[in-house]
């Protein structure tokens, strides 16, 4: 493994580790699957590093890798098997104290995202990150009108949920 490649990997992860966390929390509600998903995303980011070039925004590239892994990730739901077990070592540690005042709202937000199907989750995550419909369509390779329909449907679901 070259030193430059490893350093680039660490730099990208250090700056954008939040993307991995947000995608993993959106796609896995149980923490054991989430930890597996984080590992798989980080392994794929390392594997895909050769495809990264300046033509992409690094966040777009990272979102693509993370979403592709998350959508194809098969959730084994280990929560029952490991219910008395604590995860000893986590790849991403999240200091809940600093976020505690928002945690209730955030939990509700993630709970809503968790209820969506995997493709709608991807659309919503990119929308929340501020990507426009053309960029979302390009990242999924679907039509802009399809993205627009999916966003309208998500809005309706949200309306029903909060009504």
């Amino acid at each position: 493994m070259s030193v430059e490649r490893h350093q680039l990997y660490l730099d990208i992860l250090e700056k954008h580790k939040g993307i991995v966390f947000k995608v993993a929390r959106s796609y896995c509600s149980n923490e054991f699957d989430r930890e597996d998903l984080v590992q798989e995303i980080l392994a794929q980011i390392w594997r895909s590093l050769d495809t990264y070039n300046d033509a992409f925004k690094v966040t777009t590239w990272m979102y693509r890798v993370a979403l592709n892994v998350a959508i194809s990730f098969y959730r084994k739901d280990k929560s029952a098997a490991y219910k008395h077990t604590e995860i000893e070592d986590r790849l991403l540690t999240y200091d809940m104290v600093q976020e505690s005042e928002n945690e209730q709202n955030l939990s509700a937000l993630y709970a809503f995202i968790n209820e969506l199907n995997d493709i709608d989750k991807a659309v919503l995550l990119m929308y929340l990150e501020g990507e426009n419909q053309a960029e979302i369509a390009a990242n999924l390779n679907i039509t802009i009108s399809n993205v627009s329909t999916k966003i309208s449907r998500i809005k309706q679901k949200l309306k029903l949920k909060t009504a």
Binding site: L13, E14, K17, G18, F21, K22, D89, R90, L91, L92, T93, Y94, D95, M96, Q98, E99, N102, L106, L109, E129
Partner: peptide, 12 residues
């Protein structure tokens, strides 16, 4: 949340 995440999170 995204802005705060960078402060709250550490990579092992």
């Amino acid at each position: 949340h995204s802005e705060k995440l960078d402060e709250c999170m550490s990579l092992n």
